[in-house]
Amino acid sequence: MTEKRTIPHFHLEAERQGGSVSLSLYDAEAVSAVSPEWILVKMKGGEISIRGERLSVAVLENRRLSVRGMIRTLEVLYDPA
């Protein structure tokens, strides 16, 4: 079963690929930190923090970023500015 949620000011899409999840982040501005356990991405509306296992990042066209691996938690950090 899939569940769709809307987060204001962010455009994220998740897709299940086998035993892991591929998370697409649109309009990414920069990648602040990358490690197999934690990825922090700066977006226009704030920051996205992704925690999990065996995480990897793929840079795609049109400022799209794809995070793959066993994603455990996703935190959306709004930037009030």
């Binding site: 920069a30 990648v31 990358v34 065996r54 840079v59 066209e61 400022r63 970023l65």
Partner: peptide, 15 residues
């Protein structure tokens, strides 16, 4: 990754 993102290049970066 940030540099590639800003240059509009695509790459699948392994861990």
């Amino acid at each position: 990754a940030t540099a590639l993102l800003r240059a509009g290049l695509s790459a699948n970066i392994s861990p």
